[in-house]
Design a protein around this nucleic acid. Structure first.
Lengths: 360, 360
DNA sequence: TTGTAAGCGTTATCAA
DNA sequence: TTGATAACGCTTACAA
C-alpha cells in the first residue's frame, strides 16, 4: 500500500496527495535533500543509504514531480516542436527522427500542429512561452512578426531555437537581425534543379502545379525556383494552382487545363508534391495520355505511391527523417554547450524515373 | 525595454531572470496576489487597478510561468496522448480532431509516439507520471501489465484516462478490474461485417491479409472477427501475413500466394488496411487479373487512394476525426465534472465500391 | 476589492 | 557523505 501524507485516502486541499520526497526521506531515515541527491547524482550517496532510499521509493510508490524540479532548478526538459501537420507523412518521418534522437535523454518532445497557419503558430508560441520550453523547433522560415519576436526573445534568453525543413540562402530579415539557424534544404534550389532537369531534356514549354495550401511557403519557394530557372533559360513557363479538397482529385483535375493551355504546347510539368503528381499520372493513365511522351511529370516528396504507378513518378527525395535526427543532435549539442544551434543543410536527391523523358 | 529583477542584464544564479508577478506588481503598485487574481479572475479586480496591471504587464513583458502555477495549484493543464504513429494518416486525423477540440481551452496537448510498441508505451507513461498530466489518452486496449497499473493508478487519483480507437465488448481483464473507458469502435465487429458482406455475395472460399505490424492489435481483432464469421458460416478461410517493408510492395506480393493457395479457389479477400489492399489492386491491374470477377477485395481505413484506383477499393471508413473530437469533448467534460471519462462507441461504415462483387 | 500568511515539491548553495 | 536554509514563481485560505 501507498503511504500518503494525508491521513485518510482522500485528496488534500492542496497538493496531489501523492508521496513526496519528504515521505521517502522519512521512510529511508534521511532528509529530503539526500533523496533528491540520490535521484540526480546517485554516486554522491553512500551505498547503504542509497539502498535504503531505493527501498523507500519502492515502498512509497514515489514518483518524482518534474514540475517542482524544473521550478527549483530553472531548467525545463521540454522540447517543443511546431509542425504544420503532424499527420502528414512527410513531417511524420521527421517527427520520428526527432523522437528517436531524443529517446533516452532527459528531454520530452511536445508536438503542436499549426495547420499551416502562421497565426496559429504565433498563438502556440505564446502559449508555449508560459511553459518555458528547453528548446523550440519551428517549421520553415516564415513567421508572423510577433512569432519572430517570440523566437528571437527565446533565443536571446538562451533557449535553442531552430527552423526545420528549410535552409535559405536569401538575405536576412529586413530588420537586419541575423536569421535563425536552419536544418533542412533550399527549396528554391530544388525547384531550379527540377526545371533544369526538364530543360536539359529539351522541354521549352513548361508548367508548375502549385499547392492548394497557399501557406505552404516551401512549396512556394520550389515553384519560384522552377519558374526562375525556366525563364533564365529563355523558355516558357506557366503556373497553375491546384484546387482544395481531395489532393488526388485536385491533381487529376489539372490535366485538362495543362493540356489546353498555350495551345497544347506544354510538354513538361513540375508539381508541388507527389500526391498531386500521382493524381495527374492517374488521370493521364485513365485518359490514355502517354507519359512521358506527351507530358513529363516531376513531383516532390518521394511518397511510396509514386513508385507504384506506371510509369513510375520522377520525384525529389527530401531528407525527411534525417531532418529530425539532425535536429535532435543539434538541439542536444546546443543544450549541452549552452550555445546557439548550429544549423546545417541536408542533401536531397532528384530521382529520375519513368515519368520524365526527352521532348517528342 | 524589459525591467528585470537582476541588476545587470545577465542571468541570475537562480531563476530565469525574466519578470515575475513581483515585478509587475511593483510597477502597478499593488501586491503580487492582485496581479495573480487579475490573471485568473479579472472581474474580481477593480477596473482602474486592472488597467494599471495591464499596463505594467505590457511594460515589463511579463509572461506567466505555468509551471509555478501548476505547482501551486496542484492542477496540470497538459493532456497527454500516446499514439502508435503520429505520422500515419489515420491517427493524424484523430490528432487533428483532438487539437481542434482542445483549442481555446486552458489545456495543451502533449503527443507521444509509441511506434506500436507496448514497452515504449509503458516507458512513456512512466516518464509522463512525473509531469502530472491532467488527462491521459492511450491507443487501444492492449497494454503491458505495468502500463495498465500506471493507467489505473492515474485514474484512481482522479486523472481522466481513455482508450481510443477501440471499443471492445469482450470480458474485462482477468483481474476483475473494470475496463478503462473507450472511445472508438469494435474492430472485431468490423471484421465480421466485412466477412458477412462477402459471404452474402456468395463467396465460400475466403482469405484475410493480416498486417505486417504484429503489434497492431486492432488489425488483429478485425482479422479474428473476419475468420470467426467465415467459419461460423461454414465457409473456408485462410490467413496470410503481409511482409514488412514498403506496404504497397507487401500488398502486391500477396497476390501470388492468394491465387495459388487452396488450388486457386479463393475468390474474396479482406485486407488489414487500404494501403495493402491498394498494393493488391495495383498488382491485379498489372497482371491483368479481373477484379472483382476473379477476386473481391475489401480494405480498411478509407484512404483517399482507394477511391482513385479502378476498380475503386471497397473499404471500411472508420470515424477517424470524430474519435479525436469525441475524446476532446469527453475529456473536457470529465475534467470539468471531476468524474471518470464517459466512453462511447462511434459508427463506422462499410463502403461497397467496385472491388467487390458476387462470385463468378 | 485588496492583502497577509503559508504553502506547492523540488533544487542550489554553503556548511558541517 | 549528509544536512540546514533559502529560494523557484505562483496560488490557496482566510482576513481586513
Amino acid at each position: 500500500m501507498k503511504e500518503t501524507t494525508a491521513e485518510n485516502g482522500r485528496r488534500p486541499r492542496r497538493g496531489h496527495g501523492r508521496p513526496t520526497l519528504h515521505d521517502v526521506a522519512a521512510v529511508a531515515q534521511v532528509t529530503r535533500i539526500t533523496v533528491s541527491r540520490y535521484l540526480r547524482e546517485p554516486h554522491l550517496v553512500a551505498p547503504e543509504t542509497a539502498e535504503r532510499i531505493q527501498a523507500a521509493i519502492a515502498q512509497t510508490g514515489y514518483v518524482r514531480n518534474l514540475q517542482a524540479g524544473q521550478l527549483a532548478s530553472g531548467r525545463s526538459r521540454m522540447v517543443a516542436a511546431l509542425i504544420p501537420n503532424v499527420g502528414h507523412s512527410i513531417f511524420g518521418e521527421s517527427i520520428q527522427g526527432l523522437v528517436d534522437g531524443l529517446r533516452d535523454t532527459e528531454y520530452e518532445l511536445l508536438l503542436m500542429p499549426t495547420g499551416y497557419s502562421l497565426e496559429r503558430e504565433e498563438a502556440q508560441l505564446r502559449a508555449l512561452a508560459g511553459w518555458g520550453p528547453a528548446a523550440l523547433v519551428v517549421t520553415g522560415r516564415h513567421h508572423t512578426p510577433g512569432a519572430l519576436r517570440l523566437l528571437r526573445d527565446a533565443q536571446q534568453a538562451g533557449t535553442p531555437v531552430v527552423e526545420i525543413w528549410d535552409c535559405s540562402h536569401a538575405a536576412p530579415a529586413s530588420d537586419g537581425a541575423p536569421a535563425l539557424p536552419q536544418i533542412g534544404f533550399d527549396h528554391h534550389a530544388v525547384g531550379r534543379a527540377v526545371a533544369e532537369h526538364l530543360l536539359a531534356q529539351g522541354h521549352r514549354s513548361l508548367a508548375f502545379v502549385a499547392s492548394a495550401v497557399s501557406e505552404d511557403y516551401r512549396a512556394g519557394d520550389r515553384c519560384e525556383g522552377f519558374v526562375q530557372a525556366v525563364q533564365a533559360a529563355g523558355a516558357q513557363v506557366r503556373v497553375f494552382r491546384a484546387n482544395a479538397g481531395d489532393v488526388f482529385d485536385a491533381g487529376r483535375a489539372m490535366l485538362g487545363p495543362l493540356r489546353s493551355a498555350d495551345h497544347g504546347r506544354i510538354t513538361a510539368v513540375g508539381v508541388a508534391n507527389d500526391q498531386l503528381a500521382c493524381g495527374l499520372l492517374l488521370e493521364a493513365q485513365a485518359t490514355g495520355l502517354p507519359v512521358p511522351q506527351a507530358l513529363s511529370v516531376v513531383g516532390f516528396g518521394d511518397f511510396p505511391l509514386g513508385n507504384q504507378l506506371r510509369p513510375r513518378l520522377s520525384t525529389v527525395r527530401p531528407p525527411r527523417e534525417e531532418i529530425g535526427r539532425a535536429t535532435a543532435r543539434a538541439l542536444l549539442a546546443a543544450l549541452d554547450a549552452e550555445e546557439p544551434v548550429r544549423g546545417c543543410e541536408l542533401p536531397w536527391q532528384l530521382i529520375d524515373r519513368g515519368s520524365t523523358g526527352p521532348v517528342g
